[in-house]
């Protein structure tokens, strides 16, 4: 596996899915979670994935991040094909090239904030790039709380630590699954700003699953999913345009 050391805004794909299918269960309980999905997440872009509950947003993210296997199709991170990789290789790929932010339980309660931030690098036995780390910590505004344990931090602060962890290893792409789902709107807005800044100022690539139009409006582009298919795309979204599109799907869904 070889990856470009730094993400450059070249319009190259940080991650790409082609003809992705994901089927759960068999017979009676068969559920098609992803139905022939093809999507590209370009480097240096902030993409939001939206869609109603059960539309396959999380599944798409899990498949593309190497957390779940696909039924058929192909998915790549940089120029590495994920299909066919062994668990060990996938684990290394996630560790070294992908950042994660989950809705909850992002942090180990036994470690301090700083230790949580450097955890993927510690696991890899790599030394953190100190200048970069300082910058990340500074950006998420945690300087004074690095020695605290998660239980001593608020929910918003914990998510900021999670953001910092995702950024710290300079991954090729960061996947965030409803990172603001558990937060109040102010903390949520802070997190979303960090994500946008990390794309605009630090040159990162972020893919975020959300069902909140306001959250989606922070992104450069919104991809809409419904019933496991990509049904629409919106560039330079605002909360209103996102909401508007969503209403249209709802209406379509009802009439069809």
């Amino acid at each position: 596996m070889s990856f470009p050391a730094t993400a450059v805004r070249t319009g190259l794909a940080a991650a790409r899915a082609t003809g992705l299918n994901k089927v759960y269960g068999e017979g009676e309980t068969r559920v098609v979670a992803l139905d022939n999905v093809s999507v590209t997440f370009p480097q240096g872009e902030f993409t939001a994935i939206m869609g109603p509950s059960g539309s396959g947003k999380s599944t798409l993210m899990h498949c593309m991040a190497g957390l779940d296997t696909v039924s058929s199709g192909s998915t790549t991170i940089g120029d590495t094909e994920l299909v066919g990789l062994k668990d060990k290789q996938l684990t290394q790929l996630r560790r070294d090239h992908i950042g994660f932010i989950f809705q909850a339980f992002n942090l180990l309660p036994t470690l301090t904030a700083l230790e949580n931030i450097t955890l993927p690098m510690d696991i890899a036995g790599r030394k953190a790039d100190q200048a970069w780390l300082d910058r990340v910590v500074d950006t998420v505004g945690l300087s004074g709380r690095l020695g605290h344990r998660p239980s001593q931090l608020s929910g918003g602060q914990q998510q900021r630590v999670a953001c910092a962890r995702a950024l710290a290893g300079k991954p090729d792409i960061i996947f965030a699954d409803e990172p603001t789902g558990n937060l109040d709107s102010r903390s949520g807005a802070e997190i979303l700003s960090f994500l946008r800044n990390s794309v605009r100022e630090l040159g990162q690539t972020v893919v975020m699953v959300t069902h909140d139009p306001v959250a989606a409006s922070y992104a450069d582009r919104v991809v809409f999913l419904a019933d496991g298919r990509i049904v629409d795309e919106l560039h330079a979204p605002t909360a209103d345009t996102v909401l508007d599109r969503m209403r249209r799907f709802d209406a379509k869904g009802r009439t069809s």
Binding site: T91, R95, D96, F102, I123
Partner: peptide, 16 residues
């Protein structure tokens, strides 16, 4: 188990 899942996600392998 959630912690363990998170550790696996961010890159700790099974052996770890």
């Amino acid at each position: 188990r959630r912690e363990i899942g998170m550790l696996r996600a961010i890159g700790l392998d099974r052996l770890g």
